[in-house]
Write a protein that binds this DNA or RNA. Structure first.
Lengths: 348, 348
DNA sequence: CTGAAAGCGCTAACAC
DNA sequence: GTGTTAGCGCTTTCAG
């Protein structure tokens, strides 16, 4: 496959199936059958053709194949490549597709805020199916896409008709966090979350859900919610968290909408020489570094790998013809670590 | 673009350029010109065609275009999606290509050890150019690929004829690390690195280079090198590092071949209740988490984003016709942080 | 079991 | 300015 040097020197245009056929002295159809392992080729012919393919360094063009049938490729749309939770999902999908015969290609969202471009690009490439991770597009638009190509959406609380959904139970996750903090004796608990203005579909996004559970549970205990919103574009949650610590009466705990925010918060806390007894921090997602003993971030494990693997699995079913939408809701698990101590007596 | 619902109900096969032409009452060529913004279309015609495209939800197939000319896409091959240094490179490339008119697709290596598959898959898709990040393939094979498609390789110390190279100065980086440790008074310094058996091209790989500098500088000072190799497949550097700490006479410092190994080492150290005065750790790459105050990993910054951006830039040049190979060597910078204290008197 | 030929959707000459 | 047409490389009937 793709031999070191073609006939060295000339800028030889790449070999086509025609070239192989001529070289092997057979018809194009015969070659096609050999490479697709189709029915009806004699052993002798297979050998000859294989040899010619080898010497000519022939590789079938995906584009030409796409014009007749399928591309044997699955596309994954990823909001950010440098987010370790999305990476967990991707890893699960990659592993699950390894033996499937499908090639995986990833289209990164160039613009993390609005994002039809990456999905359109996959569609235009005629991938056989698409896994959309936390897509920032209106649900109606996704329905349209799902009508045209097998589609699985990961991360949003949709109830779609034309695609499948893999999502974590964010209500449950948020509840686990809050009850853990309440049980530890915290009452002044703040919540940092994404700025709602940047959300395309606030109703299905996981972060507003976590927020709402937070607010409800606080109020149920007669406590005043304290919500801080971060504009993801500005990229620096630290200043905002810092301002929280400057308050006259500051919170004793922070429930961060995702681990990246939690890590930023820990940064501020550490830089001030404070510890978890002064200011507890709980995240969401359980990114790999959270379990590092130097970090020890208490957080909610969504099992991203399993979500990715499930998405891949559902997509294959859909490609094979399933039409009815499926929903898989993952139960989260709280990972209690060092950053969520009870408040110190002084802080309380 | 890609409207919510096509003519709802029927499983309408997607519109083609032919359909648009018919709907607008013009020729296929006219439509083609409009969508490519080509010369020679009247305003009135452009309007009509645009309207038809809109109502039919027409999108040009990349595959069909590929059969005539280019695909306007650039492919990136990534060894692992969950490696934060590769992610830095990718981020740089994504940003740099944002306005270029090229779509980016990423092919993850399914098999992290040997890896022609991802590159072949990109080639088969007729991408207009390829960025190969730390490819695990023989150099001769890459030369072959470079003869067929514009190619930039990131991370290996090649001296190629048919592609460009973007690489860090690993000799310099390793020297910075060692002199820093020597200056701090360390003499028993160990080195963890990847198992050489898994390397396809040990001569061009950065890790053996770092290793060799380590060995040379140790010997120059009359010190005995102590090298530990990790099989990346086994994925667990911790046990190996732990065994190092169990020695009767244990090292006071560890130079880790990359940050992931360094973080594993810090895990072991922390779990034993040891600190940097007992066992200093220095990494390589400066992954984002290294600068977190709770980690404070001393490491070598390779400026992955800049490397990725440069790779993208060189690739565009090559796509535009440059033939002579270019090499860009990046000077690394040591980021001194908390994990590299001098040895305590007791440990010394 | 093998070969000839039609056609997938698009672009680029070229003719009008 | 606009339309006609010849392929690009492949798969897939359909005859032989």
């Amino acid at each position: 496959m793709l031999d070191p040097a073609p006939s060295a020197g000339s800028p030889t245009r790449a070999a086509t199936i025609e070239d192989v056929a001529r070289h092997a002295g057979v018809s194009r159809a015969a070659v096609s059958k050999v490479i697709r392992d189709a029915y009806g080729v004699s052993d002798r012919m297979r050998e000859r053709v294989t040899a010619s393919i080898e010497t000519l360094g022939y590789r079938p063009r995906v584009a030409a194949r796409a014009m007749r049938g399928s591309t044997s490729t699955i596309g994954v749309q990823l909001p950010q490549v440098d987010n370790d939770f999305f990476t967990r999902i991707l890893t699960g999908a990659v592993q699950s597709l390894r033996e499937s015969g499908y090639q995986l290609i990833i289209a990164p969202m160039a613009d993390p805020v609005s994002g039809t471009a990456a999905l359109e690009s996959l569609y235009d490439r005629q991938v056989d199916g698409i896994i959309a991770v936390a897509p920032a597009v209106p649900q109606a638009w996704l329905e349209g896409l799902g009508q045209r190509v097998p589609l699985v959406q990961v991360g949003q609380h949709d109830h779609p008709r034309n695609y499948d959904v893999v999502v974590g139970d964010d209500d449950e996750g948020a509840r686990l966090v809050m009850e853990h903090l309440f049980a530890a004796g915290h009452t002044r608990i703040a919540h940092v979350t994404n700025d709602e203005r940047v959300l395309v579909e606030p109703r299905t996004d996981p972060h507003p859900r976590r927020l709402r559970v937070y607010e409800r549970l606080m109020r149920e205990r007669g406590l005043e919610p304290e919500v801080i919103r971060i504009d993801p574009a500005e990229h620096d949650a630290r200043r905002t968290v810092a301002s929280l610590l400057d308050r006259a009466v500051r919170p004793t705990a922070l429930f961060a909408g995702h681990d990246s925010l939690a890590l930023s918060a820990l940064e501020v806390v550490a830089n001030r020489g404070l510890g978890s007894a002064d200011f507890a921090v709980v995240g969401y997602d359980d990114v790999p570094i959270a379990s590092h003993p130097l970090i020890g971030l208490t957080t909610v494990d969504q099992d991203g790998e399993q979500m990715g693997a499930t998405a891949a699995h559902l997509l294959l079913e859909r490609i094979r013809g399933r039409i009815e939408p499926e929903r898989r809701v993952f139960s989260p698990a709280l990972r209690v670590r060092a950053t969520s101590s009870p408040p110190s007596v002084a802080a309380r």
